[in-house]
């Protein structure tokens, strides 16, 4: 009787032990959840972190995400800012590794140029049509007087 109770308890405990073992139990990186002491540098870091994309939770910035990888990325941003790197340098360090994907700040590149070119093109077409219409109207009214 006692033996079977012990066996049942061991089994029961085992059920809980396995998932606990499977958890990520490491403490976060030093600067994952700790702000920089200098408020100016921290503001600079936050501004950058808001425009960097979390790689695990693809629709959040690393500033908004609780994913461990986002924490590790915040640590990189803060410690690099502290070491005197500029936000531009840090962004391009990440873009070199992950491509435009990691940045929420749109940049003109071989794949994104239509995003910038098409609105300009449309504005040009609109301007052209307007000019032609206004020109026509002016010459029409000119004809009456």
């Amino acid at each position: 009787m006692i033996r079977s109770v012990v066996a049942a308890l061991t089994l029961f405990g085992g059920l809980f032990a396995a998932p606990i073992l499977a958890q990520q139990s490491m403490p976060p990186a030093p600067y994952a959840y700790v702000q920089l002491e200098d408020p100016v540098l921290e503001a600079e870091a936050t501004e950058l972190m808001e425009t960097l994309r979390c790689l695990k939770c693809q629709s959040q910035s690393i500033n908004d995400s609780d994913a461990p990888m986002a924490g590790d990325m915040r640590h990189q941003v803060r410690s690099r800012i502290l070491a005197g790197e500029s936000p531009t340098q840090i962004r391009s360090w990440l873009v070199e590794r992950y491509g435009d994907y990691v940045s929420y700040e749109p940049e003109v590149s071989s794949t994104t140029w239509p995003l910038f070119a098409i609105p300009l093109l449309l504005l040009g077409v609109v301007a052209l049509i307007l000019l032609r219409r206004l020109g026509k109207r002016r010459s029409e009214t000119g004809g009456h007087s």
């Binding site: 990186a29 790689l55 990888m69 590790d72 990189q76 590794r97 992950y98």
Partner: peptide, 14 residues
């Protein structure tokens, strides 16, 4: 790699 240092260096995302 406790803080994804190498992962970030080589562009690994998972």
């Amino acid at each position: 790699d406790d803080i994804s240092e190498l992962m970030l260096e080589i562009g690994a995302s998972g």
